[in-house]
């Protein structure tokens, strides 16, 4: 199959790749670009483990074609920490033991960051509904919700 050339921006870096037209952005990130932080739990947009930002909107990378990324801006979990400093959400997830196996964690972090960027002071209910597209099978969500709420508080204090 002939491949398509795509130029895009990922975590602030210009990136070029070749992909087949039926490959998803998730396939490209993981298999072509070795950005394996985005996880595939379902391939159908039902688990949120592949959450990334596409032109500032939270999406599932498994529901985006690789070819669609032309001239877009993509942010992934790999771009969340800055240098040797974790994002407050990452730090709070650790402090609250908000991960057990950790497979859903990158997706939750990207989704939670999108929430706090849009709504710095969410209620518990708002956090729960915003994150309803991210499945976690280990934690029962309790500690994840607490970590997000705590990170929001801390980030408001810094702002």
């Amino acid at each position: 199959m002939t491949q398509t050339h795509v130029s895009t921006t990922i975590n602030g870096d210009k990136v070029e790749y070749l992909c087949e037209t039926d490959e998803t952005l998730l396939d490209v990130l993981r298999d072509t670009l070795s950005l394996t932080g985005s996880k595939e739990g379902c391939g159908s947009g039902d688990c949120g483990a592949c959450s990334v930002m596409l032109d500032g909107r939270l999406v599932c990378a498994c529901l985006v074609l690789g070819v669609e990324a032309q001239d877009r801006k993509i942010e992934t979990i790999e771009g969340m920490a800055s240098g040797d400093e974790l994002h407050p959400l990452q730090q709070k997830f650790l402090e609250h033991a908000a991960l057990q196996c950790g497979i859903c964690t990158p997706g939750f972090l990207v989704a939670a960051k999108a929430l706090l960027d849009e709504n710095p002071d969410p209620t518990e209910t708002e956090v729960r509904y915003w994150l309803a597209g991210n499945l976690c099978r280990c934690t029962g969500y309790d500690k994840i919700i607490r970590a997000v709420m705590d990170a929001a508080t801390e980030m408001r204090g810094q702002a």
């Binding site: 993981r30 950005l35 394996t36 932080g37 996880k39 650790l94 497979i103």
Partner: peptide, 16 residues
């Protein structure tokens, strides 16, 4: 923990 919150931990499908 840090490996897992930064997406660097290698799970089953992450190896090549």
């Amino acid at each position: 923990g840090v490996e897992k919150v930064t997406g660097r931990a290698k799970f089953g499908a992450d190896l090549s």
